[in-house]
Design a protein around this nucleic acid. Structure first.
Length: 482
RNA sequence: GGCUCCAUGGUCAAGCGGUCAAGACAUCGCCCUUUCACGGCGGUAACUCGGGUUCGAUUCCCGAUGGAGUCACCA
């Protein structure tokens, strides 16, 4: 068997969409699983949709995602150029060759004539009108400088068939396919044609792409056949959906790799999650590194039906990745989020990291979790009502007063010491220690959920600030109980 | 609408003629706990519907229904 060669051929139109990234990932994984070559080709023939800087986005996305191409515009492997706009000159000659071989023909029909072919639903199928032109006639009109396009010549009867690696046997009646344009009147190739020529010239033998090409693939095969080229293997991938009806697309936003990065997702978690969207590993382990994905990726596990993107699960997975991070590393990747929070520059991020790691699923949650350190004021006292701990506002107030009394002369404000004092106090009062710590935590943070327990929070805030807040809370509760 | 595909819990999904129909997320409950979390344990929840084939269908075939894709001088 020939060495496996797959490719990812994005158009530089802006940020990388999650669906595209998954297609790219699968092509990469398939190549790596089979010790093959993964090629990056930029399809920038449509200048109208071209977005400045988009090529750089592609590079940076692949890099962040941990996908390393073996060949591409920046890595010549002998099959270049890898940028379609630099290959312009190639296509017309191949089209002419195809005309020679009977797989295509010149067409001079104008817009008006094409328009007249439309049926009641506005659907037109070209009627092969120009196929009957004699060679001389074509030469003459060409010499006259008439505008033309080159169309594929598809048989009018019979059936085209092929085996898709994930969908299996696909068969399409030839009469349902139209003689599509290969070379446009401006002399440029259409995507359909450029793709076939490029894939062949780059020796791509496994074409991996979205299902939208599933039913037009027979047309491509017909071209390969007419040229006398060997057909590649195909692997079509079902789309990722936003919900049961709508495809995940740029139009709905939030579906870009960059967007998720901004929200505080780790690139490896995103990659891991999208690998699982539409593919399932043999085992039950779902947290898989790129290395494991490369080893385990398998066509068998690819699903045929569309899958709905579930951010909740990706979020969970991201949390799993965060939990295994060393605090210093967390502090580093979380730096931007600390910087945009109210605690910016006021705390040791590594210390905060230790508390935050088990409590945060995406980095974007950081500001809301730490802001209470700098922000404290009137809060909702109903939080003190806790029926499981058998705490009421009245009891909380009484306990807080006792705590203040106990702590006011304490010098050692460390987590450990405070914990001991609290436990001892509870014992002395004959109550559960939680009845001390819960009110205390609430009193000094004013927050329902905090990145740590009462004594950890107290240590973080320091004695002065803790006592200030304790007083504030006691006063707050006293006012209410009057 | 024509054509091509697809169909297991709310979601991702395993299953490839005989299973009490895995697992994960979400959800709910319990336990642990020094409150917030982490963690542990458990619960609820699925084979779209009809016909066949078969001793036996989630699994194979046909049809219906539902869904996706495609019908451009766009990729």
């Amino acid at each position: 068997m020939n060495k496996v060669r797959t490719r990812f051929a994005p158009s530089p139109t802006g940020f990388m969409h999650i669906g595209n990234l998954r297609t790219c990932l699968y092509a990469y994984l398939f190549a790596k699983k089979n010790n093959g070559t993964f090629v990056l080709r930029i399809e920038d023939t449509d200048q109208e949709r071209y977005v400045e800087g988009a090529v750089d986005v592609i590079y940076s996305t692949l890099k962040k995602a941990g996908i390393e191409h073996d060949e591409g515009p920046d890595k010549d492997g002998g099959y270049g150029p890898y940028i379609q706009s630099q290959r312009k000159s190639l296509y017309l000659d191949y089209a002419k060759e195809l005309v020679e071989k009977g797989g295509a023909y010149y067409c001079f029909c104008d817009k008006a004539r094409l328009e007249s072919l439309k049926d009641g639903n506005g659907v037109a199928k070209y009627d092969k009108h120009c196929l009957s032109l004699s060679k001389e006639e074509v030469e003459k009109r060409l010499a006259n400088g008439e505008q033309y396009v080159i169309r594929q010549n598809i048989p009018t009867d019979g059936v085209s068939e092929y085996e898709d690696m994930v969908f299996g046997h696909i068969s399409v009646p030839n009469e349902d396919m139209e003689d599509g344009v290969l070379i446009k009147s401006d002399g440029m190739p259409t995507y359909n044609f450029a793709n076939v020529v490029d894939d062949h010239l780059m020796a791509i033998n496994y074409v991996i792409r979205g299902v939208e090409y599933l039913s037009s693939t027979p047309k491509y095969n017909l071209m390969y056949d007419a040229f006398g080229w060997e057909r590649p293997h195909y692997m079509h991938l079902s789309p990722i959906m936003k919900d049961a009806q709508r495809k995940l697309s740029k139009r709905y936003g939030d579906a870009n790799f960059e967007d998720f990065l901004d929200k505080g997702y780790l690139p490896e978690a995103i990659v891991n999650y999208i690998a699982l969207l539409g593919w399932s590993p043999k085992g039950t382990d779902e947290k898989l590194s790129m290395q494991q994905l490369k080893e385990q990726f398998d066509v068998d596990g690819i699903s045929k039906s569309p899958s709905i993107f579930d951010e909740a699960k990706m979020r969970w997975l991201n949390g799993e990745y965060i939990k295994q991070m060393p605090p210093t590393e967390f502090a580093e990747v979380a730096r931007p989020y600390f910087e945009q929070s109210k605690v910016a520059g006021k705390y040791d991020y590594t210390e905060l990291a230790k508390l935050l790691i088990p409590r945060v699923e995406i980095l974007g949650e950081i500001p809301e979790k730490v802001n209470f350190l700098e922000e404290f004021g009137k809060y909702d006292t109903s939080m003190y009502e806790h029926k499981k701990m058998k705490i009421t506002k009245e009891l909380a107030l009484a306990n807080l007063v006792a705590i203040r009394e106990e702590l006011k002369d304490v010098d050692d404000w460390s987590d450990g010491n405070l914990k001991q004092l609290g436990t001892a106090l509870a014992e002395k009062l004959g109550i559960k220690s939680g009845q001390i710590f819960l009110p205390l935590r609430l009193a000094i943070t004013g927050a329902q959920s905090t990145p740590g327990g009462a004594t950890e929070m107290a240590e973080l805030l320091g004695k002065e600030e803790s006592m200030r807040r304790l007083d504030f809370s006691i006063e707050l509760l006293s006012k209410e109980s009057i």
